[in-house]
Design a protein around this nucleic acid. Structure first.
Length: 566
RNA sequence: GCGCCCGUAGCUCAGCGGAUCAGAGUAUUGGCCUCCGAAGCCAAGGGUCGUGGGUUCGAAUCCCGCCGGGCGCGCCA
């Protein structure tokens, strides 16, 4: 929210203009127009006043099309309405001139506003004052949010899809934290059930000298090379399947942890599916579902009428052989999330788990314990294809049937992999070009952003002044358009983070960083920073310091390093 | 067959609560280092936004059909 309060004391020096304005002029403007609209058109409360930054700079800094929307409903001339709304709105906006250089009614009825340059430049002070907290916000009443991601079965190495999830989930968590919520990162292990049984059988078979395809090899056995490694290192009895299972699961969990550490992802909670059985939570859910009256017996199995809660078909709870389906622990697990007090839960999953969304929500609704209908949220991401040398890579030796996260890290490194995996919308198909990610000298977007940061650092490395003095630099010495644009871009950062967090779209951070880096590179080539004129030099250094802070803060949100040298 | 998602420049992709939306990067071509890092900058060419309708003064954006692609649709997890 717009705090609207400037806590900084007015400087006594008359040489320094007032840059301490922290009110959000856009919010003020929108509010003024909302009130004007309420007077002009009380019958149309559905109309929303939105100010946006026009694509083309000549259309000003903020633009609004409310007059056009209203004209349609009132069947009146949009330009006249724009004038009428504006005169009402500005009459109520006493210090308009303090923020804005002017406005115009353009085209069919757009209202365009131009900020005063010093308002744009004020972002520089804000960024410097905030330091590492730039872009962050605090909430009076933070909510408890859980982001569940990766959640790979301990049946093999992590694949590229898990990598995408790790990048997305960790960035989402960081963004939500930055906006003031309390975030828990959680990993759920499906360490019970048939797949784990297959894993144990596969390791046992390998240990007995069998290979995939041999007579006696388990029907759904795992063929990857890692099975052989596990079998080689297992020292216990080959008859003790339970011991083999435990060994294999521990081995693979450890291996996954190593990859995640290298990727820079840490989890607060690891939740084991098996604990849901040992704690009795699975039984509890079954009883609760039966008590709900929404179950029925058919063909020897127990079913839930999940279609009554938006699922596309009813689900089996207990199979005719007496065992529960995976549906039950899934619901039990999500019930624990609700009971653990997570007001908001975001599950990051691949689109191959599309079906679980309706199922889990339906199961929670059937329990009738007050869980909201849209709980939990899902961010579904599509699959990753890997290209190398102009060809698609489909398998790795180690995993057998898929490319691993480790392959990606070995080929391109953490920063490039993170940045790349976040440079697409989650639900967009994604082709990971290894050759591009490896390119250290050319067209690599990661280096483009990191280079901007290193460049700023390099400038500061050649300057011997006192950094503390930057905060009192005379910003009115900044007078060219590139400087205004850069400052304005910096000023957008907090809103951008808030918006990306709300929309659950970490990719917009990477796009923002590219724009910011581009504007800085352009500025750097056009103007010299370390000029002889000391006041101008200080002002430009202050701008550079704000750029550096914004790049560092943005990169940190997506888990990419901000190097001082490259 | 049903459900969800996706078709935007040669390639990889933004934009998609309509308007001021035809964009970025890359590739191609041509310029810029005696000067803070050329991993950079400046400029040019390149697309009837899959397709056909509809709503609208106005559609890449909303609605419907079709074509093409992905993922689901198990008493597997």
């Amino acid at each position: 929210m717009c705090a609207g309060i400037s806590t900084s004391t007015r400087s006594s020096s008359i040489r320094i203009p007032d840059f301490s304005v922290t009110s959000d002029p856009k919010a003020r403007l929108a509010e003024a127009y909302r009130q004007a609209l309420a007077k002009e058109a009380p019958d149309h409360p559905e109309l929303e006043v939105v100010f946006e930054k026009p694509r083309q700079p000549e259309h000003g800094d903020f633009a609004c099309s409310i007059a056009l929307q209203l004209a349609k409903r009132l069947k009146r001339n949009p330009r006249q309405l724009a004038e009428a709304l504006t005169s009402k709105a500005l009459a109520a906006f006493a210090d308009f001139d303090k923020f804005f250089a002017g406005y115009e009614i353009a085209g069919p009825g757009f209202i365009n506003f131009r900020l005063r340059p010093e308002v744009k430049l004020a972002a520089i002070r804000s960024a410097l004052a905030a330091g590492a907290d730039w872009g962050r916000a605090t909430k009076d009443r933070p909510i408890s949010v859980q982001v569940e991601f990766v959640s790979a079965n301990p049946t093999g190495p992590l694949h590229v899809g898990h990598g995408r999830q790790a990048a997305i989930g960790d960035a989402l968590a960081a963004m939500l934290e930055a906006r003031g919520d309390k975030v828990t990162r959680e990993f759920y292990y499906n360490d019970a059930g048939a797949q784990i049984h297959n894993l144990a059988l596969s390791v046992q078979a390998r240990a007995r000298g069998l290979k995939p395809g041999d007579a006696g090899w388990p029907a759904d056995g795992y063929a990857g090379e890692y099975i052989e490694e596990i079998a080689r290192q297992y020292r216990g009895s080959l008859e003790d399947l339970e011991a083999i299972r435990r060994f294999a699961v521990d081995y693979l969990r450890e291996e996954q942890d190593i990859d995640l550490r290298e990727f820079g992802v840490k989890f607060d909670v690891y939740y084991l599916e098996s604990s849901l059985y040992t704690d009795g939570k699975v039984d509890e859910v079954v009883k609760a579902l039966i008590a709900s009256g929404k179950t029925y017996e058919k063909d020897g199995a127990l079913w839930l009428r999940s279609t009554e809660y938006g699922d596309d078909k009813d689900r089996v709870i207990r199979k005719s052989d007496g065992a529960y389906t995976y549906f039950v622990p899934d619901v039990a697990y999500h019930l624990t999330k609700w009971r653990r007090g997570f007001a908001k839960v975001i599950n990051v999953q691949g689109t191959d788990h599309m079906g679980t969304k309706a199922r889990v929500r339906a199961g929670l609704q059937a329990l009738n314990v007050g869980v909201p209908p849209g709980y939990p949220d899902y961010v579904m991401h599509s699959m990753v294809r890997v290209m190398r040398g102009g060809e698609e890579v489909k398998i790795s030796k180690r995993a057998g049937s898929y490319v691993t996260l480790r392959d990606l890290l070995d080929w391109a490194g953490r920063d490039a992999v993170r940045f790349f995996l976040l440079s697409r919308r989650a639900d967009a198909d994604f082709v990971f070009d290894i050759d591009l990610a490896r390119a250290q000298t050319e067209e690599n977007p990661v280096y483009y952003v990191q280079y901007a940061h290193a460049r700023v650092c390099s400038v500061f490395g050649q300057w011997t002044g006192n950094p503390a003095a930057l905060s009192s630099a005379d910003l009115s010495r900044l007078t060219n358009e590139k400087e205004f644009a850069l400052a304005q871009r910096i000023g957008e950062f907090p809103d951008l983070v808030a918006e990306a967090a709300r929309e659950l779209s970490p990719h917009s951070i990477t796009f923002y960083l590219r724009s910011l880096a581009a504007e800085f590179h352009s500025y750097y080539n056009a103007e010299r920073i370390l000029v002889d004129d000391e006041a101008l030099r200080m002002a430009r250094l202050a701008l550079c310091a704000a750029v550096r802070q914004t790049l560092a803060s943005g990169l940190s949100l997506i888990g990419v390093s901000a190097p001082e040298k490259m």
